[in-house]
C-alpha cells in the first residue's frame, strides 16, 4: 500500500467531523470520494496534507509512519513534498504568472535550478496547449485555465499522490470538460489520485474504487459499476438517486 490511514478523528469546536476513518490506497490507484456536503470528504483530504491537524489517527505513507495527532514537523513536510493538492477555487498564487505558479514548487520545494524548472514548466504548458498564457496572471485566466494550471502545478512535482478537492465544482459547465480531460490523462499515466467530486460520469469511467462518505464515516466502498448500479447501503442509494435527479 502506498498510503494507509487508521482511525482518523477530527473535531471542530467540539463537533466531530471525522469519526474514525480507515482508508488505504495502492500505487497507481484512483479513488473517487463521494458523499453529501458536510460529510467530511474535504476535511479528510486536508488532513492527509496536514492542512488540518487531526485529533487522532495513524498514517503510513510510502514507508513513513506518522502519528497524525502529533506529527513531527519534518515528517509533515516530507508528506507535503511527496503529495500535492488541487483546490476547488484553484488557489493559484495571485502575484505569480502561470509559468511561475508551476515553477514555484520545483524551485523552492525541490531545490531545482531556475532555468531547468522553467524548461519543465514551459513543456508542461505546451502539452496543455496553454503556452500563450505562460506570462499571464491568474486574474487574467479563465476558471478552466486556472484549474488546469493548478493541476500542472501539482503534477510537475511528480508527487506520489495528488489530492483533488472538488476540482470542477467552481467551474462553468462548459469548462469542466477540459479539466476532466487533464485528469483522465493523468489517470492513464498511472498517477495515484484521490478525487472528491460530484462528477459521477467521470467517476464511473476513471475510478478504480468509489468511497462513499456520510456523517464523518466511510459507509460503503467498491468498484464504480457495483457501487453505482447496485449500492448495498440505503444512504448510498439515496444519495446517488438525489444526484442523478439533480443532473
Amino acid at each position: 500500500m502506498l498510503l494507509t490511514v487508521n482511525d482518523l478523528h477530527k473535531s471542530f469546536n467540539g463537533r466531530e467531523i471525522l469519526k474514525g476513518i480507515d482508508f488505504q490506497i495502492d500505487k497507481g490507484e484512483i479513488v473517487v470520494m463521494i458523499g453529501p456536503s458536510g460529510s467530511g470528504k474535504t476535511t479528510f483530504l486536508r488532513n492527509l496534507n496536514f492542512l488540518e491537524h487531526a485529533d487522532q489517527g495513524q498514517m503510513d505513507f510510502a514507508g513513513h509512519q506518522i502519528d497524525l495527532a502529533k506529527p513531527d514537523k519534518k515528517e509533515g513536510q516530507w508528506v507535503r513534498r511527496h503529495s500535492a493538492m488541487v483546490f476547488q477555487n484553484y488557489s493559484l498564487f495571485k502575484n505569480k504568472t502561470a509559468l511561475q505558479n508551476i515553477t514555484e514548487g520545483l524551485i523552492y520545494a525541490q531545490g531545482m535550478a531556475k532555468d531547468k524548472a522553467e524548461a519543465i514548466a514551459k513543456h508542461e504548458l505546451a502539452s496543455l496547449g496553454l503556452s500563450q498564457e505562460a506570462q499571464l496572471y491568474p486574474a487574467q485566466l479563465s476558471g478552466g485555465q486556472q484549474q488546469r494550471i493548478g493541476i500542472a502545478r501539482a503534477t510537475v512535482l511528480n508527487p506520489e499522490i495528488i489530492l483533488f478537492d472538488e476540482p470542477t465544482s467552481a467551474l462553468d459547465p462548459e469548462l469542466v470538460g477540459s479539466v476532466l480531460g487533464d485528469m483522465r490523462k493523468l489517470a492513464e499515466a498511472g498517477q495515484t489520485m484521490i478525487i472528491v467530486t460530484h462528477q459521477l460520469g467521470f467517476a464511473r469511467q476513471a475510478a478504480d474504487r468509489i468511497v462513499f462518505f456520510d456523517e464523518g464515516k466511510v459507509i460503503e466502498e467498491g468498484a464504480p459499476q457495483a457501487m453505482f448500479d447496485h449500492p448495498q447501503n440505503k444512504r448510498t442509494a439515496q444519495f446517488l438517486t438525489a444526484l442523478n435527479d439533480a443532473n
Partner: peptide
C-alpha cells in the same frame, strides 16, 4: 490575504518562510 494562498503553498511543500 486569502488564507488559501498559504494552504496552496504548503500543499506543494513550499517552506513557510519562502
Amino acid at each position: 490575504v486569502d488564507p488559501g494562498q498559504l494552504e496552496a503553498a504548503r500543499s506543494i511543500g513550499l517552506p513557510d518562510r519562502t
